[in-house]
């Protein structure tokens, strides 16, 4: 199975209104689902949105800007320090766009591996930033990380085909 990209580049984008709506809904789900359904605290909708749109756009600067903006919005809603999520998501956006340039993103296995890797990197980055740099809780919990990876891989594999319908050639 060839997961590296050899054919000509095909870059996609989403309509700004659609993208804004998706960002809005992802933030809304992020803050409103966990109180009603505690298991939903594992879902990382904004992270999946950053991943997907950075990968399909294949533009690292876009990935950084998009991730940074969405992360800062999350920070603003979280009532914590501004910049924690912003930095983590900017980093993930950059990595996702880089991965989009190198890998065949339509492949289901590639999608799964990329989502797992980026969720892991995002959570570890966030942990290092908040716990090690700022000295804030919570402590690192490997099982929590594993659960988060598995849940978000499953969620991403469900959501990404839906997002595929919204993308249009750039």
């Amino acid at each position: 199975m060839d997961i590296y990209r050899h054919r000509p580049k095909e870059v996609f984008r989403a309509h700004p209104a659609v993208l804004s709506l998706i960002v809005f809904v992802s933030l809304l789900l992020e803050v409103t689902l966990p109180p009603a359904w505690p298991l939903a605290h594992l879902f990382q909708f904004p992270l999946l949105v950053v991943m997907y749109f950075s990968m399909v756009r294949e533009n690292q600067v876009f990935g950084i800007a998009f991730g940074s903006a969405l992360g800062l919005l999350q920070d603003a809603l979280a009532h914590g320090y501004l910049g924690q999520m912003g930095m983590a998501k900017a980093f993930v956006g950059y990595l996702a766009a880089t991965a989009g340039l190198k890998f065949e993103f339509d492949n289901l296995l590639v999608r799964g591996v990329l989502i797992a890797s980026l969720v892991c990197i995002h959570n570890v980055f966030l942990y290092l930033l908040t716990h090690e740099l700022l000295g804030l809780p919570p402590p690192f919990e490997p099982l929590q990380l594993l659960a988060s990876i598995l849940v978000n891989v499953a969620l991403g594999l469900i959501l990404f085909p839906l997002f595929d319908r919204l993308k249009q050639p750039a």
Binding site: V61, I64, A65, Q84, G86, M87, A90, F91
Partner: peptide, 18 residues
Amino acid sequence: HPSFFVLLGVLLAQLLLL
């Protein structure tokens, strides 16, 4: 590697904000 330095700049800016 312009985008990498953009990333570094963004991270640095947000670190300053923090």
